[in-house]
Amino acid sequence: MKAFGNIHPSVLMMYFLSVMLVSMFASNPIIQAEALFGGALFCLCIQKRGTALRDAGFYISLFLMVAVTNPLFSHNGKTPLFFLNGNPVTLEALLCGVSIAVMVIGVLLWCKCYSEIMTSDKFLYLFGRIIPKLSLVLSMALRFIPAYIRQSRRVSRAQKAMGLYSGKSISDRVRNRMRVLTAMISWSLENAMDVSASMKARGYGQKKRTDFSIFRFQRSDCALFAVCIVLLSVPLVGMAAGVTDFTYYPGISRIETSPAAVAVYAAFGALSVLPSVLEAKEAIIWKYYVSKI
């Protein structure tokens, strides 16, 4: 189920950039927690069930690593918990480490969602017109990779059949890969020259390139775009005005609860759960129609 993935790429790009921008650089713990929650929820929505548990293990160990090591490097703060090798381990540094860990994991989860949703075809569609040559190079390279992987399997099988470096030891593995890579290089460059001759024969560079895409900017995309802009502008204005400022050093500041700050939290919270809500809505509609059959 990827209801969110069917939205127009430009809206998707805008959405991911704005969520990541705020969650990467906001220092307020509530905003960070919201980003983490939204990212985790959306990851759960679009991922296969099996991988979630394994990923959770990785993220928890990353969390501990970042959170626990921070007080070892940072001795700022005014409430020492205990002394280690004569250096104070402070409450502030520990909490700051927790906040950094929450931020890092939130951003990683959003990056994961981004990779899942913004496939390379959408990326190329968005940038094909602004940077035609670069995106041509990108799309050619992306197309070469699977072809090269196939070819390198063939080369590798042929070499194994000849009994070259097929052992399990590291030096054998490295040498095997190196032989495959050199063979691949001459093959791929000859191939590249054929591609370029063929492009020239078909008139590349004579006129503007035409392209085909199945993305249409619909009314729903427009609505979503507007919603995103509104929901993004509230936290940006709030942060610029310093409503949600939060510092750990020298002492932990109070979490701001003025109406303006609450508006910022609400807007960013809505922004970060937006894709999960869309997925859930789509799932409910689907279930409803299935039940009617």
Partner: peptide
Amino acid sequence: LVLISAMTALSVLG
């Protein structure tokens, strides 16, 4: 153009 993309693809492949 094609050479740059081929070299890029090769280093990714590596």
